[in-house]
Design a protein around this nucleic acid. Sequence first.
DNA 1: CCGGATTTGCAACGAATGTTTCAATTATGC
DNA 2: GCATAATTGAAACATTCGTTGCAAATCCGG
Lengths: 300, 300
Amino acid sequence: MGVYTDLREKLISDYATLSPQMQKAARHILDHPNDVALRSMRALARAANVPPSTVTRLMAAIGVDTWQQFRDSYQNRLLDLPASYAHRARELQNSEADIHRDAHLLQSIAAAEIANIGHAFAPEMCECMKDACEHIARARQVFVVGRGAAYPAAYQFAYAYRLFNENGVLVDGHAGAFGDQLRGIGPRDVLIAVGARPYIRDTVRAVAFARKQHCPVIAVCDSNVAPIAVDAVAKLVVSDRSPSFFQSFTTSVSVMQALVALLVARGGQKVLQRIAVAEEQLAAFDAYHEEAAPTRNSRS
Amino acid sequence: MGVYTDLREKLISDYATLSPQMQKAARHILDHPNDVALRSMRALARAANVPPSTVTRLMAAIGVDTWQQFRDSYQNRLLDLPASYAHRARELQNSEADIHRDAHLLQSIAAAEIANIGHAFAPEMCECMKDACEHIARARQVFVVGRGAAYPAAYQFAYAYRLFNENGVLVDGHAGAFGDQLRGIGPRDVLIAVGARPYIRDTVRAVAFARKQHCPVIAVCDSNVAPIAVDAVAKLVVSDRSPSFFQSFTTSVSVMQALVALLVARGGQKVLQRIAVAEEQLAAFDAYHEEAAPTRNSRS
DNA sequence: CCGGATTTGCAACGAATGTTTCAATTATGC
DNA sequence: GCATAATTGAAACATTCGTTGCAAATCCGG
């Protein structure tokens, strides 16, 4: 259970033992939790018709050191975040440096990754993913481009997608054939572009080219105003915050996987059969080590 | 349409015409809308790395009188969100169960990914990662191998690692040169192998070869008894559970990134300088897209 | 009714807020 | 190439913030 819930229950359980003025404050907090998150303490006190000091005293009475802590819990509730992670993520914002000990660093990374994924699967993002799927499902050909650190995410999608659809093209610029691979791209296709700051020229140019051919673009990136996101038909903006020196592309990979999962779910039985066929082919090519079974997740 | 939406679209549409510093601020606002609602203007400015006055000027530029008004819109969005989602969810339940199922699937994926990462950064795993780092830091050459769906994780590590060390080799079997790339591998090197069920033959054979040459192996895999994990000097066993049809390699990517972060932290200032040099080289190669848009001339 | 303990509100504090002003710098047009 | 305009960051501004100290008010057992 979240910290917010704890505080709320403490307010309720201790309500009877509080002084009359504190009860007025507590009552207002219980009735208007959003005011705690959004308005200032003094504003809350005015609304509850008590002096500010009463609210401070109420904090002390329920065992909270500072109003800031109290407010943070209520803000996290509004964000619908797991409080513990959000709290740690915020700690990172403040500390910045002094992460020299390995254990600290790793814990910070974990917290950041979890927070990033949490944001990536927020309701509004889910809507965007579904929109993106619509476009992909309708497309004649599905191009995927991602360079540098974003390449894994692009590759990941292309690899999985090609297991059940033959119209996927990974634009990886092998042998310099960057333009070659985009040949024939048009309005009925779709280009999925992955990239974050610093944006790599090849990716930006691929997007620009696709746009010029009136091909819709799905952008998986770090900003709504990223050069690859302008004019995109679907923007999947993921956070790549990381306490380490490098930005994290974990979330991009996760989102790309989620897109595949949505497509598979949408495709139904037919897609599953295609995947089975593809895996048989791989097995026939002797790609798998002996003990192997299907690629899929069903563990025995 | 809410006021928030209007403001957001105004920011996006006017983005190109804003001054560089205002773009920085606008970008941060677009990418972190919750910060607007919950944090102070100065805190936002700090996060965006601009002076407070820039934010005030941005308000004037987009036709908003005061920060208070701007913030109110973002706060209202936060308050309206839950309601609108509840409404939409009900809508979907009545009409089509399909889309509702999509949302459920995505939430399950998110939960699984978060759980996987949580396990990957458990204390005992952190110990293993530190051990792995010791071996990597001591190694003459660092080979990385991962095929199929595991390739992104391997690539990710190799890409980042090569930014600050020249002894990294990504064994990707391009042009069939799988054996070539492992030539000369020996006891003083280290091989990082990534793979999960079904284990791909190439990876297993690369590990076997390395072992025969008495090269220590670090295995990032899904099981302690995976063929690539036997005799491994460090086993990083990650969970790849996913409600989708495919297994998830998100955690592998995350762990590989964490290894890089540890190595960077261990390397200290010297490593940071090397990274800076590497990025300058990339910039010299014209690899990056020009950021500071000089296209903001036409003032109307 | 009283005296000690608790509760309450006011005032003041330092810190932080949002905004404005103003030089210094940078870019731009002619 | 220079004059003009636009952009920028630091400093100062009046407010507002959360908190604390203290005196007045209130309560309550004797």
